[in-house]
Computed example of a mutant assay.
Amino acid sequence: MIKPSSLQKGDRVAVIAPAGPPDREHLLQGQRVLEEMGLDVVIGKNVFNAEEDLAAAGEKRLADLHEAFSDPAIRGVFCANGGFGSAKIAPMIDYEKLQSNPKIFWGYSDITYLLNAIQQFSDLVTFHGPMVASDLNDEQITKETASSFAPLFTGESIIYDSHTSRLQTIAHGTGEGPLAGGNLTLLTSGLGTPYQVKSKGSILLIEEVAEPAFRVDLMLTHLKQAGVFDEVQGVVLGNFQADPDEHFKIRKVLQNFFAHARFPVVENFLFGHCQPNYGVPLGVEATLTTSPPQLLIDSGVQ
């Protein structure tokens, strides 16, 4: 996998919206957070485009992606928010262009589809992390979320243990492999396509939001029957945001589903639709242990 270069203060980064337009005020608030990190932020031409024609909207969102990767002055590409439609532009991406101009690509939720597609066809490390409008706005941001951008500058590896959140082990063991995954719905929708997550030998990250327990169980079963869990080396369960009653049911689903796994499974990592929302690189080597529970992730930049 190709690691993009680390960031330095003064570097220019682009904000794009492959999954739909963000709230304008929230985006401007998030832009200020990036600027406080010392970055020069440019906003994609089509970020606020609310084109009703989905095909036309996809072409404009794709144009922002290609322009950001083509511009040698831009060192990182950060997504504004989630939404829908990322899957539609995956077949149209010029993956050779991205591979020839490696840089940080950062997002989650619906962006999961692009994180996996870019990894597979550009051999580029991508980043599952908090987004500019939805996570860095004044209402949502926490200092922990903002601090998870720091490894992009320092190149440090990431150690995630119970000092970060109260991790709980479902299945014991030790696993090593590249970190992969993302949002459960998007992982499931990618099955059978050229953009299906590469789970063989991986530590698989799974998170979700606003899905009932029965749907979580159905999607996990779909992944299992498609062979996704056959050769994974571990599973990291992120946030599964839901109301308290439904969250209790979801935890039961997760515990029952993974109780007899042959690989380590740890839950309650703060990745995804939550605050704090910690950013992590995908495609780099990671080690998951359970005594005590800990996830060690190599640096995503060079």
Rank of each mutant, 00 (worst) to 15 (best):
M1S: 13
G20L: 03
P21V: 06
P21F: 00
E25K: 14
L27A: 03
E35A: 13
K45N: 13
V47L: 03
F48I: 01
F48R: 07
A57Q: 13
E67V: 02
A68G: 00
A68F: 05
S70Y: 06
D71P: 05
G83H: 08
F84S: 13
K88C: 06
Q99C: 05
S100C: 12
K103C: 05
F105W: 01
W106V: 04
I111D: 00
T112G: 10
I118M: 04
F121A: 05
V125S: 01
H128L: 09
G129D: 03
V132L: 09
L136D: 00
Q140S: 12
T142I: 03
E144H: 09
Y160D: 03
Q168G: 02
I170V: 14
A171P: 09
E176F: 00
G190Q: 13
P194W: 04
V197N: 06
K200A: 15
K200G: 07
L205T: 05
A210M: 14
E211T: 11
P212Q: 15
R215G: 02
V216I: 15
Q225I: 10
G227P: 01
G227L: 04
E231Q: 15
V232L: 03
F240M: 12
I250Y: 11
V253F: 12
H260M: 11
L270D: 10
H273Y: 14
H273G: 10
T289W: 07
T290M: 07
T290W: 11
V301K: 03
